[in-house]
Amino acid sequence: MKEIKLYKSPFKSLRLLVLTSILVIPSIWLITKEKETDKIIWFCLCFFGFGFLLSLFNILDRRAQIIITKIGIRDITLRQGIIKWEYIEDANDVQIFKQVFVALKTNEKFVIKKKLYEWTKYLNNVVGGAEVNLNFSYIKVDMEKLITFINIMKSENIENRETIMEMYEDRIK
C-alpha cells in the first residue's frame, strides 16, 4: 500500500538547540566556577536545559511524524491511530504563536480516544482549531497544497486515492 511519510525537519530543531545553548553553557560554567550560585542560574539551567534536551530529541528522532495512506491519516504524536478519510469533513490550517496545525473537523462517527477537557474545547473554538489538530510545527510542508490534498482525499473514492497520492507526494513535501 502506498504511503506518504512526513518527517521532522532537523533545521527547525537546530535553531532551538542554538538558542538554548546560549543560556545553558554559561549556566553550567557559572555553577562549576562559583561556590555559591543564585537560584536564577539553576532555574535557567533547568528551564533552558529542558529545551536543549527537547531539541536534541527532535534532531535525533527520525520516525515518520505523519503517515498518509489511502485509508486515512495518522499523526504519531496524537496516539489516536489512523483517522479515516470518511471521518474527515473539513481541514484548515491554524497558526498559534508561530506553531502550525492542521485542524481536522470530523463527523460524529469518529471517536476520540482521549477525552478533551471543556477548557481545551473552548480554546480550540477560540483559535479556530478542531477536536483533532495535527502539529506541523517541525515538519516542512507546503501547507496550502497539503490542505488542498486532504480536502480532495476525504471526498475521493478509495480506488482513486493512490493516484491522487502519487500526484501530490512531491508537491506537499
Rank of each mutant, 00 (worst) to 15 (best):
M1E: 12
K2H: 11
L6E: 06
K8H: 10
F11I: 14
L14Y: 11
R15D: 04
L16S: 12
L17M: 08
L17A: 01
V18H: 03
L19E: 08
T20M: 08
T20S: 15
T20V: 06
T20N: 12
T20C: 12
S21C: 08
I22L: 13
I22S: 02
L23I: 14
V24T: 11
V24M: 06
I25A: 11
S27Y: 09
S27R: 08
I28C: 07
I28T: 07
W29E: 10
L30Y: 12
L30W: 11
L30D: 10
T32V: 15
E34L: 14
K35I: 13
T37Q: 09
T37W: 05
T37L: 08
D38N: 15
D38K: 13
W42T: 02
F43L: 15
F43T: 12
C44T: 12
L45R: 03
L45E: 03
F47D: 05
F48M: 09
F48H: 10
G49A: 07
G51D: 07
F52R: 01
L53N: 03
L54G: 11
L56S: 02
F57S: 05
N58D: 14
N58K: 13
N58R: 13
L60S: 10
A64M: 08
I66N: 04
I71M: 08
G72D: 05
G72Q: 05
G72M: 07
G72A: 06
I73Y: 02
R74I: 05
L78E: 02
L78G: 10
G81K: 05
G81A: 03
I82H: 02
W85E: 01
W85I: 00
W85M: 02
I88C: 02
I88T: 06
A91I: 01
N92P: 00
I96D: 08
F101D: 00
V102H: 04
K105W: 07
T106Y: 07
T106K: 02
N107G: 14
K109R: 14
K109H: 10
F110P: 07
V111M: 11
I112P: 07
I112W: 01
K114T: 13
L116W: 08
Y117M: 11
E118D: 13
W119L: 08
K121A: 10
K121C: 09
Y122N: 14
Y122R: 14
Y122W: 15
L123F: 15
N125C: 05
V126A: 06
G128V: 07
G129A: 07
L134H: 10
N135G: 04
F136V: 05
S137Q: 08
I139Q: 05
K140T: 15
V141H: 03
V141S: 05
D142Y: 01
E144P: 00
K145Y: 08
L146N: 04
L146I: 07
I150F: 13
I150T: 03
I150E: 04
I152R: 12
I152P: 04
M153T: 06
M153C: 05
M153G: 01
K154I: 00
S155C: 09
S155W: 01
E156D: 06
E156Y: 00
E156R: 05
N157L: 07
E159P: 00
E159A: 06
N160L: 02
N160T: 00
R161L: 00
R161C: 00
E162A: 06
E162W: 01
I164K: 00
I164V: 13
M165A: 01
E166K: 14
M167P: 00
M167T: 12
D170G: 11
K173N: 13
